[in-house]
């Protein structure tokens, strides 16, 4: 396990190097000049030149890249738009996103798994159909629309919850539900499909034939076996959500990292986008490492290094 962790952490170096070059080139390939966008429509040519000089925007690409990497390692990357250190702006937003992600996960993971297992256990029943229709709605409904509808009902009509922003615990509720709805649906559908598959395998039939109680068969033997694919999906979603749920963040004015980077893209704020994407890549790699370690607890075969899946 220690070796796995070490290799993965070392793997971060080539991954981040690759990401840094890729995103650097990508940002320069799309049209747009940060100086013009940031200085606004009233800028004089002198103002534009000052911004370009300040951030070496007229230098050759290779020089710009080296300067960026050097600044990154000395922690001195500064946003072109605000002139503040990018990390100082990025980190609080990442914590906000983390908060939102964890809260959504706390709703979606247990709920999704319970619904999925129940739907599989009572296949073709009313409950199953109900869960399936609801989850189809969940995965296909645009979050943007759902968010606005939730605001209309709970904030404007009922006045129960705040309509947006980040002030205390209450403002976490609606955005979390918005994210959790799609997530729950996805986990429920996944769990149901995997459970149905597992329930028709031979070892389950054997277990049933031995006369083990149905409850025990489902929750102890079947569920245990579907944990790996479910954890994989949840893990991927977790990593993905840590990149910020841009639409949800926009609708609720939640100051998360996704919105921050998207704003950076629209302002062509190279420093923000490059640093942000590299940071998120590192987070993604580390989350995946966490999942791999989790596999070992879930599956003794992986722990012992046999039957690699």
């Amino acid at each position: 396990m220690g070796r796995l962790a070490l290799t993965r952490v070392l793997l971060l170096i080539p991954v981040l190097l690759g990401v840094s070059i890729f995103i650097f080139l990508l940002m320069r390939m799309i049209p747009g000049d940060p100086a013009i966008i940031i200085a606004g429509e009233n800028a004089t040519p002198e103002m534009l030149k000052e911004i370009r000089d300040e951030f070496d925007l007229d230098e050759p690409l290779i020089i710009q890249y080296i300067t960026f990497m050097r600044n990154l390692f000395s922690g001195k990357v500064v946003s072109i738009k605000t002139r503040r250190p990018v990390f100082e702006e990025l980190f609080p937003r990442f914590l906000n996103t983390l908060q939102l992600t964890l809260f959504s996960m706390a709703i979606a993971v247990p709920l999704g798994m319970i619904l999925g297992v129940l739907a599989a256990a009572y296949r073709n029943s009313f409950l199953d159909n109900f869960v399936m229709v609801l989850s189809l709605l969940g995965v296909s409904m645009p979050v943007f629309w759902l968010g606005i509808i939730l605001i209309l009902i709970f904030a404007v009509q009922l006045g129960l919850l705040p309509s947006g922003g980040k002030e205390g615990f209450e403002s976490l509720v609606l955005p979390s539900i918005t994210i959790a709805f799609a997530l729950t649906s996805m986990i429920a559908r996944m769990t149901r499909a995997m459970m149905i598959e597992t329930l028709s395998t031979e070892f389950i039939r054997t277990a049933k034939a031995y006369g083990l109680p149905r409850r025990k068969v489902i929750y102890k033997y079947a569920l245990k076996n579907v944990m790996i694919p479910i954890v994989t999906v949840i893990g991927l979603q977790f990593g993905y959500l840590l990149g910020g749920a841009v639409l949800t963040e926009s609708v609720f004015g939640w100051p998360g990292i996704g919105r921050y980077i998207v704003d950076g893209i629209f302002a062509r704020d190279y420093s923000v986008v490059q640093t942000g994407i590299m940071f998120l890549s590192a987070v993604f790699v580390l989350v995946n490492l966490g999942i791999d370690i989790l596999y070992m607890f879930l599956d003794p075969k992986i722990r012992r290094g046999v039957g690699k899946s």
Binding site: I148, I151, A155, V156, P162, S163, G164, S250, F252
Partner: peptide, 11 residues
């Protein structure tokens, strides 16, 4: 849209 809803809800 959210900005407007915030005023409507009194937030």
């Amino acid at each position: 849209v959210t900005r407007v809803l915030q005023v409507q809800s009194g937030d």
